[in-house]
């Protein structure tokens, strides 16, 4: 089971003065159960890439498919395939529309043709999942919530559709550190317990390093790096800086400590390991 892009190019507004080739001959396979981070400079083509992956945009050249089903088709099969891919947009408030939180989350399952009881169960499950108390929030207007709560409603709406693939565009932008941790705890549970594949676009090197198992670096419409975050941040630092990216803070702190002669192993990719290693060197418990 996998999503596939084969030699995909995408051009916005072809034949006009604003013509822009946003994706250039991209081939990519993402399997069910993967956790992929997509990073790259502003305007590099990340959002265009994920919208081609979920069938919202159709390739100008090449093709996008899910388990062999072409996503651009009009057949029932293609529609079903698109329904297995959930997407939480960069601005969740653009995605919310109903009068109450309940109706908003119920919309997707209803559209899948589920009956009242099934829909109700899905809504309750999804709210529990994202940590929104049913009694308190089901009847509230989604627009009277804080940014972090809105994002949770948007995630709940997508989770309620039980997608096999979940695409998140900038899930932590504008969230305070506490809310960011809470949202990621939920995403990790989906990933681990339901085996949902996660594809996350992010400008946060820390998010990519901490959660993803695979990282794609997009530059000017092409994927220039595809590897494990830990390895990429270690080996490709120069290249990352050149294309407007960075390395996570923990790599910088480890380097600063090494500069002062503290002997640390090369592969330190998270704060916990760093702390444990310092303590070991210093004989602390």
């Amino acid at each position: 089971m996998s999503m596939k892009l084969e030699h995909v190019s995408y051009t916005y507004m072809p034949g006009t003065p604003y013509e822009k080739e946003a994706l250039k001959d991209i081939s990519l396979e993402i399997k069910k159960g993967e956790f992929v981070a997509v990073i790259g400079h502003t305007g590099s083509g990340k959002s265009t890439l994920v919208q081609n992956l979920n069938g919202l945009l159709h390739p100008t050249k090449g093709n996008a498919s899910l388990d062999g089903v072409d996503l651009s088709g009009k057949s029932n099969e293609a529609k079903m395939a698109r329904g297995r891919i959930g997407m939480v947009f960069q601005y969740p408030e653009h995605q919310l529309f109903a009068e109450t939180v309940y109706e908003d989350i119920a919309f997707g399952p209803q559209n899948l043709g589920l009956n009242y009881e099934e829909t109700d169960a899905r809504v309750k499950d999804a709210m529990k999942f994202v940590g929104l108390d049913f009694e308190t929030y089901a009847g509230r207007s989604p627009f009277s919530l804080s940014g972090g709560q809105m994002r949770r409603v948007a995630i709940a709406g997508v989770v309620a559709m039980n997608p096999d693939y979940l695409i998140l565009d900038e899930p932590s932008a504008g969230l305070d550190p506490g809310s960011r941790d809470a949202v990621f705890a939920e995403v990790m549970e989906l990933y681990k317990k339901r085996g949902t594949a996660i594809i996350m676009v992010t400008h946060s090197m820390e998010d990519a390093a901490q959660f993803a198992k695979r990282m794609l670096v997009v530059y000017d419409g092409r994927i220039i790096i595809d590897g494990k975050p830990g390895e990429v941040f270690l080996k490709e630092k120069e290249q990352l800086l050149k294309v407007g990216m960075d390395v996570p803070e923990v790599y910088k702190l480890a380097d600063a400590l090494r500069d002062k002669g503290l002997r640390l192993p090369k592969e330190i990719t998270d704060a916990k390991t760093l702390l444990a290693e310092i303590k070991r060197r210093k004989g602390l418990r």
Binding site: E249, V250, K252, L253, A256, L257, D259, K260, G261, L262, A271, L274, L275, I278, K279, K282, L284, R285
Partner: peptide
């Protein structure tokens, strides 16, 4: 991060100057 690591190291008994907040300040202590 440097402040958090310094905080944890102090809890484990390491003597560190107060008010470390940058990587360089923490590194200097080593």
């Amino acid at each position: 991060l440097a402040a958090k690591v310094a905080f944890e190291l102090r809890k484990s008994g390491m003597k560190l100057p107060k008010e470390i907040i940058t990587n360089e300040e923490l590194a200097a202590a080593f």
